[in-house]
Design a protein around this nucleic acid. Structure first.
Length: 352
DNA sequence: TATACGTGGCT
DNA sequence: TAGCCAAGTAT
């Protein structure tokens, strides 16, 4: 039970001062935060773990040290650099947002949540995080970590996502006036390192004494969540096509939707049933003698499983007619290939 | 409110 | 192994 929210915030900040983590995007004590780096890291960290983000953050900031540099870059350069990190709409919105900030805000990020919220790719969480961390303005930052911490200390039994409104309201009651940036990061660090989804380290928690869920012995059960729908399986056939020079045919996916704007090995549509021989011939990028490679490429997206067969062929005289770009095999690493397509390439190289 | 949108690590 | 989960946003 929280009897004194100011005391609770002070306890958390004290814990943070003693356990502050050194992360690539985090200003050291006494340093001034760089809004560009805060923004970039927050976009990358959306639904993505710290270890996955770290190398991407380093390469982006080395190559594009300012938001103006990022705004001046071609979108395709960002997509290549983002390849493998996932949720590619983030990269497209990153580029849009950089241009809005560079062209519409004189190269400076706005400081208020309302203005930040208007930027592409910036939602409620990210707007609050940037305002608090980059500008030290009071804001209630609510991400998955904060939802979990709040659900536990107040023993909120209502399942997510319905509980979101309640959790946000409760979180706001604890937000202190002082040190907004440190407090926001402290809440998230507490969730990431102590108040973890499984096996929470309550013995190390600065809020153990006031945690209702711990008192009730249900900390690990919270927050409750409604069961997720089962993932369907979709199936298709990918075409590994070489030209007489040994280059591979790649295509650019549609700008919107799944893997929007990214490169791909051409394939049939992905449906519940694997396409039959007639469909494989009909959807092929060129008429050719297609040889089925052994095995399957399996990949799981957020909302479905994918199973791809791979067929291979060498294009004949009409190879220039194919829709797409011919890429030498040793240049595939420079393309904006999402992980599922990297798997297809590896599979083809291993079996063709 | 519900759904689309990636990936890799952990259990 | 199969499922869960991570600093969410857009529609």
């Amino acid at each position: 039970m929280i009897r004194d929210s100011r005391k609770a915030a002070a306890q958390l900040l004290s814990w943070y001062d003693r356990h502050r983590r050194d992360l690539p995007w985090r200003a050291k004590p006494g340093e001034t935060a760089d809004p560009y780096r805060v923004w970039l890291s927050e976009i990358m960290l959306q639904q993505t773990t710290v270890p996955a983000v770290a190398p991407y953050f380093r390469s982006f900031t080395e190559r594009w040290p300012t938001v103006a540099d990022l705004a001046a870059a071609p979108l395709d350069d960002l997509l290549v650099a983002w390849a493998g990190l996932g949720y590619y709409a983030r990269a497209r919105n990153l580029h849009k947002c950089a241009r809005v900030v560079a062209d519409g805000h004189g190269g400076r990020f706005p400081e208020t949540e309302a203005e930040l919220l208007a930027l592409p790719g910036v939602g409620a969480y990210t707007a609050a995080a940037i305002s608090a961390i980059a500008f030290d303005r009071k804001a209630t930052v609510v991400d998955g970590n904060v939802e979990r911490v709040i659900a536990r200390i107040f023993a909120v039994e209502e399942p997510l996502p319905a509980a979101k409104t309640t959790l946000r309201r409760l979180a706001a009651t604890l937000t202190p006036d002082g040190r907004p940036g440190d407090y926001a990061q402290a809440m998230m660090d507490l969730g990431a390192t102590v108040c973890t989804p499984r096996k929470p380290r309550c013995m190390l928690c600065p809020w153990a004494d006031l945690c209702d869920a711990r008192a009730a012995g249900i900390a690990e059960e919270l927050p409750r969540k409604v069961a997720k729908a089962e993932k369907p399986t979709r199936r298709g056939v990918a075409y590994w096509l070489l030209n007489p020079d040994g280059a591979v045919l790649l295509r650019r996916r549609a700008e919107e939707g799944l893997l929007g704007g990214m490169a791909e090995i051409p394939s049939t549509g992905w449906g519940p049933q694997a396409p039959d021989a007639a469909a494989v011939a009909a959807q092929a990028p060129l008429p050719a003698v297609w040889k089925r490679l052994p095995g399957l490429v399996r990949h799981t997206f957020t909302h479905f499983h994918l199973e791809l067969e791979v067929v291979a062929a060498v294009a004949g005289d009409g190879w220039r007619q194919a829709d797409g770009r011919w890429i030498p095999i040793d240049r595939l690493g420079d393309q904006a290939l999402p992980t599922v397509m990297v798997k297809v390439v590896r599979h083809a190289l291993a079996h063709a």
